[in-house]
């Protein structure tokens, strides 16, 4: 404590109180409350009528096809956005590390979709994906390629949402990677070059290992983001067609706010939380062994 008298020992806690209260009331207690609700056959309109059912909500979820299906759909989306996004973002960041005239404009262009509202720009992409009049099928048509149903096809809908999501969010990862790349010392890379390493060898021997804290950060943040993604599914596909894009988050919304199955939805929320926490811990553990901390 820097020079404040003893009766002011309480002061630091007072400074933390406004933020702490908001977190407590709207995040921490509700998180505990959702766990509590998940053990009840919850009456949405009259909470007093709710009945304790133990693990029945979890049991019915884990034995239902829709839960496992949504898990697979989420996995598909995560694979489409996270590893693919990581590869694309790192490639773009590497391409933009060489200073060339106009580089700042390219970087700005790549980042700009990230600040746009998902409702607004996903509407733009619904129109681009339109099977009859859309731009993409127009391009396919002019290339004499078969046209696709995109968001209206159970096969292509998820790929469409993935394309939109990559367009929207890739710029953030690119900026993070560029920050990580510029923090790697030039001397080390030069030393590798002087020792006769090719660009490719230099990347795998020097840049990639030193970049690993950044890569881990991007991996965790994009995985959490993808597991939580909701709005683009709401506007572009509404979970369809044939629930081909009903992710865990979308199923949670449907169960809770369309069908008012509050108890099972709360159980699903708890499972979603466990999945996200588990994935994060797993990524940390797996990557830590191969991560060099600078």
């Amino acid at each position: 404590m820097i020079g404040y008298s003893r009766q002011r020992r309480i002061v630091p806690y007072l400074y933390l109180t406004p933020a702490g209260l908001i977190f407590l009331i709207f995040t921490i207690l509700p998180a505990a409350f959702v766990l509590y609700i998940s053990f009840f056959n919850w009456d949405f309109l009259n909470s007093a009528m709710s009945k304790f059912v133990g693990l029945a909500n979890y049991q019915s979820l884990l034995t239902s096809g829709e839960f496992w299906h949504s898990l697979l759909v989420s996995l598909y989306f995560v694979i489409g956005t996270v590893p693919v996004g990581l590869f694309l973002a790192l490639s773009i960041a590497l391409a933009l590390m060489n200073n060339f005239p106009g580089r700042a404009f390219v970087r700005l262009s790549v980042f700009s979709p990230y600040v746009t509202p998902v409702v607004a720009t996903s509407i733009v992409w619904i129109w681009i994906f339109n099977p009859q009049f859309g731009l993409l099928n127009g391009i396919l048509h002019s290339l004499h390629l078969p046209q696709l149903g995109w968001l209206e096809s159970p096969h292509w809908a998820m790929i469409g949402v993935v394309i939109y999501t990559l367009w929207h969010s890739l710029g953030f990862d690119v900026i993070i990677f560029m920050a990580g790349l510029s923090a790697i010392s030039h001397e080390l890379r030069e030393a590798a070059r002087i020792d006769g390493a090719t660009r490719w060898q230099e990347f795998w021997a020097v840049t990639w290992p030193l970049l690993s804290p950044t890569t881990l950060f991007v991996l965790v943040v994009t995985t959490i983001g993808s597991m939580q993604a909701f709005t683009q599914f709401f506007t572009m596909t509404e979970g369809g067609p044939l629930s081909a894009t009903t992710t865990v988050s979308y199923l949670l919304y449907e169960m809770a706010f369309i069908f008012y199955r509050t108890g099972p939805a709360a159980a699903l929320a708890v499972i979603l939380f466990v999945i996200i926490a588990g994935l994060t811990a797993l990524q940390m553990a797996v990557t830590r062994r191969r991560t060099f901390y600078q």
């Binding site: 998180a31 909470s47 919304y253 929320a269 939380f273």
Partner: peptide, 13 residues
Amino acid sequence: IPTTVLLIPDYIL
């Protein structure tokens, strides 16, 4: 703690 998880309890609150 994801916002999606908090929707139900916060709605009730």
